[in-house]
Simulated assay, not measured.
Amino acid sequence: MDDSALDLRQVTTPDEVSPELRRELVACWVEVTNAGGAAGFPFPPVDAGQVSPAVDSLVAGLAPETSRLVLASAGGDLAGWLNVRRDPFALVAHWGTLHHVQTRTGLRGRGIGAALVRHVRRIARDEMGLEQLRLAARGGVGLETFYGRLGWREIGRWPGALRLGPGDDRDEILMVLAPL
């Protein structure tokens, strides 16, 4: 799926999140997590009751200067989303961090995640005035390859930082995209 087949948009304030969009965000996050996705809830299964407070907190923190949701829709339905945030502290205000990059499981492999990441790069640079983006990815699922194809580079690892279960320790991979 190319970027032109997607409706890519951003949400910058809580009042832009309708009840329907909130339901779609929760449903996507539950679906991605329960399929084993590394999207913020490491121990599936989860349900809407667990995910809803996280969505509400994320939405409450939206502000054009510091936190935005980037959404991809296909055929009028949410196909994927991510969150980009910056810390307002002057020492680090020149960079932002990606959080919760996710695509509906039935739509994976169609370039939606890549379209979201390319789109947020433009938003971060042109609208938020950021100079670089950072993220932390779970090792063992190929995320460093995905992001690497989009220009990100690995800058470090924390070996065994993530314990998903007995005998299932994963590296946390630190990545950066600079310049934007």
Score class of each variant (00 low, 15 high):
G76Y: 14
S4F: 10
V59R: 01
G151R: 05
T105Y: 12
A60S: 14
V11D: 04
R118T: 10
V46H: 08
A35K: 11
A90C: 13
H99G: 09
D87Q: 04
V11I: 14
W81K: 00
F89V: 12
V17S: 05
L69H: 02
F41Q: 06
V51L: 08
A27I: 02
G140W: 01
R153K: 12
L6G: 02
L133P: 05
G37E: 02
V51S: 03
V176L: 11
G160V: 06
R125M: 11
G113V: 12
A48E: 12
T145R: 14
A54H: 14
P166R: 09
Q50G: 01
L58V: 12
V176E: 12
L6I: 03
D2P: 06
P19F: 07
P42M: 02
I173M: 06
G49F: 05
G61Q: 05
P64Q: 02
L107Q: 11
L180T: 15
A115Q: 08
T97C: 09
E131F: 12
E127M: 09
S4C: 10
G96Y: 06
R108P: 02
V120Q: 04
A54E: 11
L133F: 04
W152P: 04
A54Q: 11
W29M: 08
C28E: 12
I155S: 05
Q132W: 15
G167V: 15
G106H: 10
D7Q: 14
G167Y: 13
A161E: 04
V32Y: 00
V26T: 02
I112C: 09
S67H: 11
P159R: 14
V46T: 13
R121G: 13
A74S: 14
G111S: 07
I173V: 13
L174D: 04
T33V: 08
D126G: 12
V17T: 05
A72L: 12
G76L: 09
S57W: 03
A60E: 09
S18N: 04
G151L: 14
R138L: 12
Q132C: 15
L135P: 05
E144D: 15
T13N: 01
G96F: 10
G36T: 06
S57E: 15
P14R: 01
A39N: 08
Q10R: 11
A90T: 13
R138K: 11
A48N: 05
A5Q: 09
L78R: 01
E172T: 05
F89S: 01
F41K: 14
L174Y: 15
R86L: 00
L164F: 06
A124D: 15
E131R: 09
L150R: 15
G148W: 12
A137H: 02
L8R: 08
G36K: 06
T97M: 13
A54K: 06
L82A: 00
A35N: 10
G151F: 12
L6T: 06
L21W: 12
